[in-house]
Design a binder for these strands. Structure first.
Lengths: 244, 244
DNA sequence: ACAAAAGTGTTGTACGTACACCCATGA
DNA sequence: TCATGGGTGTACGTACAACACTTTTGT
């Protein structure tokens, strides 16, 4: 994290992660949020940036992403996937190739009490970030919105038990549009990805049935790429980490 | 390409490209083919590998991919996109992070006459390649097959004028299954991506109308990522390069 | 005339969308 | 009892797969 050696050919490799979670705003709406870290040194001192660091030559790419993620949030992700390698010449002093990952955290993630210079931001209203990180977040959001349409990753943002309204709210927060509750219900019921429980959430109006995610199959089809080991079998980081 | 310096932190960055094209085999069927380069030094001397080389610190990632592609095939691609960054610790001696691109060449691409240690291979019947390149090609093929389903990249494999049968054959070669000619016709006609010409291809049976690709819009939607400058506006490499 | 590819028509099914409607609970 | 979210029913339109059929050429 604090190494400063510059290789002979001037190319350094960094790993950073766009970490998405959900948070309910003052108006009660779910919003996509992500944790950012305030830079404490040049370049871009004082600006907010994606959590990340230099790749250690003895550390796997995905491990580096998980590590910075754990250091930042104290949590293990429910989903982790490589996003893109950004390496434009002008994007940082010297030549830095950043391997960017993106991750999902289950709703309600809290930053560790001792977290300094870390804060959650509404993904839809970000300030100017360090380097090309605004651009990177835009791309990660685009991928998230795309992927939510043809995979089950939305479940990665919810706790183990959830109602269909919970799930629909996740989709609505990501896609930024309202969905018909009746049609949404049938779509997910027919997809075979949900297991109904006999538990109900009470407290307001008619109780809603709680569902559980069907763990057969992956959150997202990734082809011949190795499945991320972090997904739901995450590294033990802190006691409060909940794995399904 | 021939630099051997090792950076202080032991991490080197390479750029390689999976280049797809089409070739008609002895039985007259279209097959997906890719050019490979025989390694002339250790590691894996004698094995075939993806064309590529070390990233120069003054060269953009995509430029490096285009360059190695031009050096290998003498051609400019009709489509070029980053595939994935492979950086597993054991994948090569030392620590090598390879930024892999994948590209499409229009049908009938010929290797330059002076090309040594370069040959086309049937993507479906590859020998054991150097490093993790078999795995990489598998992933590139998976992406190609996926992308052909929701984008127009198949056009990137055809010349400027083509019949609907030509286009259907491209899809059939990539997807490895036969498509109904009648339904295929309607699908692409309704997609608005084709412009019919008044020219016909004669020579066998009923003449087939030639179509032109509608250049409005991109071959594939890529979100906030910059469009590849190589796509159909390619760098001038050799005279025989044809841009639409 | 015949074979074969080019191109059109028709039908059934699946699925998304819109929206009317009933159900169960808290207040 | 009423408001509200939970949950079901239904009708319509589009999209796609299957396949019968017509058209136009080369031989």
């Amino acid at each position: 994290m604090t190494r400063t050696e510059v290789p002979v050919d001037g190319i350094r490799v960094a790993v950073s992660t766009v970490i998405f979670s959900l948070r309910r705003d003052a108006a009660g709406r779910l919003a996509v949020v992500l944790p950012l870290v305030r830079r404490t040194r040049d370049p871009h001192e004082g600006l907010w940036a994606l959590p990340g660091g230099w790749l250690d030559s003895t550390e796997e790419l995905e491990t580096a992403a998980s590590r910075t993620l754990a250091e930042t949030t104290g949590l293990a992700p429910s989903y982790l996937e490589q996003l893109y390698a950004f390496g434009d010449i002008g994007r940082a002093p010297g030549r830095v190739v950043s391997i960017i990952y993106w991750a999902l955290l289950r709703e309600g993630a809290q930053l560790p009490a001792d977290a300094h210079n870390v804060a959650w931001f509404d993904a839809a209203h970000l300030p100017t970030l360090a380097f090309d990180h605004n651009h990177i977040v835009d791309y990660a959001l685009w991928r998230l919105r795309n992927k939510v349409g043809y995979s089950r990753i939305a479940h990665g943002l919810l706790p183990e038990l959830f109602t269909l309204s919970d799930l629909r709210e996740v989709y609505e927060a990501i896609l930024e549009r309202e969905l018909d509750p009746a049609n949404f219900r049938r779509q997910v019921e027919n997809s075979g990805t949900l297991i109904p429980t006999e538990q109900f959430r009470t407290g307001s109006h008619r109780p809603a049935r709680l569902y559980r995610y069907n763990h057969e199959g992956e959150l997202a089809e990734r082809g011949p790429l190795p499945s991320d080991t972090a997904s739901d079998t995450a590294l033990p980081v802190l006691p409060e980490e909940v794995t399904i």
